[in-house]
């Protein structure tokens, strides 16, 4: 019977056409949309061209200084939107400086932390990953009201728990919980443990 079921499932596989379709659509969904071309009136193009000409004729030396400038024009700031980017930094302080808001991290982690990694995700989400012996905890903080955990799975139990005046959403199997989500002011937070723990442990970890 189970051999038959495996034989049946072998009939279902990703074909070359399907692979191409999926990769194309994924690329479309994760790329920056091209900016629409803007046509300016002729006089404005001429004025712009004249300005450029003046720049060329009168500012060759100045251009040398401009080329050496490290600054990038501000209208390029949205290049890369929608593409997950990861920048690992070396300390909590550098993490806070890079994302532009204070990052607190977790305390009273329920295992001995042997490594800590600080990462900036998507330009403004701070992540701290605490690694222990065969276990880990991940803390994320981001501005706004969006869930920063990246965990959109369904859980058998979801409960609201008041910890130090904050309403924390705990997700797990009803007894042990592996994911906590909360908001405080202008920021959203998540903490995820690879090994689920009780509400008491969460309370100890988040109330500190």
């Amino acid at each position: 019977m189970w051999t038959a079921y495996r034989d049946i499932m072998e009939h279902v596989s990703v074909t070359e056409d399907m692979r191409r379709r999926i990769l194309t659509r994924l690329e479309e969904n994760t790329s920056v949309p091209a900016r629409p071309a803007i046509r300016f009136p002729l006089y404005r193009r001429l004025v712009a061209a004249a300005a450029c000409l003046l720049l060329l004729l009168g500012g060759i030396l100045a251009a040398g200084r401009v080329f050496s400038s490290p600054e990038v024009p501000s209208d390029l700031g949205n290049v890369g939107n929608g593409i997950p980017s990861f920048t690992e930094v070396s300390s909590l302080q550098e993490l806070s400086q890079t994302v532009g808001f204070p990052v607190e991290g977790l305390s009273h982690i329920p295992f001995t932390v042997t490594e800590t990694h600080y990462t900036v995700l998507m330009e403004n989400t701070a992540e701290i990953r605490y690694i222990g012996d065969g276990t880990s905890a991940v803390y994320r903080k981001t501005p706004g009201q969006t869930d920063p955990s990246g965990d959109y799975g369904s859980y058998a139990a979801v409960l609201q728990w008041d910890i130090s005046g904050l309403t924390v959403t705990l997700k797990g199997d009803g007894t042990l919980f592996s994911l906590a989500l909360w908001q405080d002011g202008d920021y959203s937070y998540s903490a995820q443990l690879s090994t689920p723990v009780s509400t008491a442990v969460w309370e100890n970890m988040l109330s500190a």
Binding site: V14, R25, L26, N29, T30, S149, G150, Y152
Partner: peptide, 15 residues
């Protein structure tokens, strides 16, 4: 579903 699953993975960068 396969496409949406991969899209979720790429966009949410799960831990």
């Amino acid at each position: 579903v396969l496409q949406d699953t991969l899209l979720q993975f790429l966009k949410t960068a799960p831990v």
